[in-house]
Design a protein around this nucleic acid. Sequence first.
DNA 1: TATTGTTATACTCTATAACTATA
DNA 2: TATAGTTATAGAGTATAACAATA
Lengths: 134, 134
Amino acid sequence: MSTRRLGYLLKHANLRLTELTGPALAPYGIDGREFAVLSVLGTPEPLSQLEAAQRLGIDRTTMVAMVDALERKKLVGRRPHPDDRRKNMVELTPHGRETLDGATRAVDGAERAFLAALPGDDARLLRDFLERLV
Amino acid sequence: MSTRRLGYLLKHANLRLTELTGPALAPYGIDGREFAVLSVLGTPEPLSQLEAAQRLGIDRTTMVAMVDALERKKLVGRRPHPDDRRKNMVELTPHGRETLDGATRAVDGAERAFLAALPGDDARLLRDFLERLV
DNA sequence: TATTGTTATACTCTATAACTATA
DNA sequence: TATAGTTATAGAGTATAACAATA
């Protein structure tokens, strides 16, 4: 059965998850990709645009548009790096931090709903397996 | 860590798998999406364009272009359904069948390489988990 | 009236190439 | 010369709307 192929399963699992995370994030005015950017920026370590892009495996030109959008929404701010003015350090605004916190809880809930078909241990195993593959 | 999020893991697992299946399919002149279409058409049951699209969860307008491409490559043929001439039945040509058989072995190999980081039982579990989620 | 296939079109996501400024 | 950010642009991949043929 072609619907047992790994490519099909991964793609459609992702589609189904997006169907849940999308509405969960809507009240926060962001989508899943913006949530991912906020998440890497939410770690203690300050990151430049390029560094944030590399963490997520996206191109730096893609990151420009993402940071533009998040800045328009007052969720992040750009600041030139003091020692290397080629770099833009990107940091969460207080509003960005609150948004990330709420959005994180919303996404946690969406992931739980998505994984509801699996007993608790299996859900944990699935995540562990995927981590070993990426 | 934002890179433990399910969305990130599913997306990047799929990206990594595609990096393996792409080159594996290249000798057959098809990509992963075309392989998926050939696969559903490879089952004994004859399918119309719409039915094939529904099996894969893609739009019927998308299927038009896919069948166009596969027909240009002489891998499939369109035939009007004898009892309902609105329908195009799509069937593998002999060359399409050979291509599917070889491509299936190539994709099996790519999946094995992708899953090499997991012990055999875990690889099977991963596929089972994903099947329960889609 | 509803369905299947088709076409035209538009939108989202992403990357490549070329530019600016800084190093 | 090389790097970070930016802009313009183009290419996938996909879906929506409108139409023709058929039911």
